[in-house]
């Protein structure tokens, strides 16, 4: 509550604040609309899908493929030139009746497994897939060992002689 109190004290008088907020809101709305229309006009893909199922399949497939220019975007999301080329390529291969697997293999042959958002499970990715599990298990082992030792220690310290002055224990830090 203290925090809100200080913020109110520092803020502008109510009237100015409200009108400012309105102006800002208006500006934001206009800016958002402008950007939305730009984004929208860029996103339009004149890909002639035969039916809805084909479109869904296309979107599903392109969302699993990485754009290599802006590497944290899928080729479905990216506005990069290469992503547009790859979308067209995927679409054309779909028209030729190639399966999702074949299309993925085609891209992997050219751009390596990196083009797939889901790394395949194979010998050299075992550590990638199961490394976190190993670390979790190792952590669990450490925790279990610590708990066991502590409960054993607790059992012995209860019987410690009462006259001894408490020494600097490890818990202090």
């Amino acid at each position: 509550m203290m925090l809100f109190g200080t913020r109110d004290a520092l803020a502008l008088p109510p009237l100015t604040r409200a009108s400012r907020a309105r102006a800002l809101l208006g500006f934001l709305l206009v800016a958002m609309l402008a950007f939305a229309s730009v984004a929208h006009s860029q996103a339009i893909q004149p890909l002639p899908f035969k039916n809805h199922a084909e479109k869904v399949r296309f979107q599903h497939l392109t969302r699993q493929l990485r754009c290599l220019v802006c590497q944290n975007e899928t080729i479905a999301d990216s506005n990069a030139d290469l992503a547009r080329d790859l979308r067209l390529d995927v679409f054309q291969q779909m028209q030729q009746g190639r399966s999702d697997k074949q299309i993925k293999q085609y891209l992997v042959a050219r751009y390596s497994d990196f083009v797939l958002y889901d790394p395949p499970l194979q010998a050299d990715t075992l550590l990638l897939w199961f490394g976190p599990l190993l670390i979790l298990l190792a952590g669990a082992a450490v925790v279990i060992m610590a708990i066991r030792r502590r409960s054993r220690d607790a059992g012995t310290t209860v019987q410690a002689p009462a006259g001894q002055a408490p020494t600097d224990s490890e818990d202090d830090w």
Binding site: L68, V69, D81, L82, D85, L86, D89, R110, Y111, S112
Partner: peptide, 13 residues
């Protein structure tokens, strides 16, 4: 110009 052959080469930039 279309960049189609470049895809075969795995060009991304």
């Amino acid at each position: 110009r279309p960049g189609r052959t470049a895809i075969d080469f795995g060009v991304y930039g």
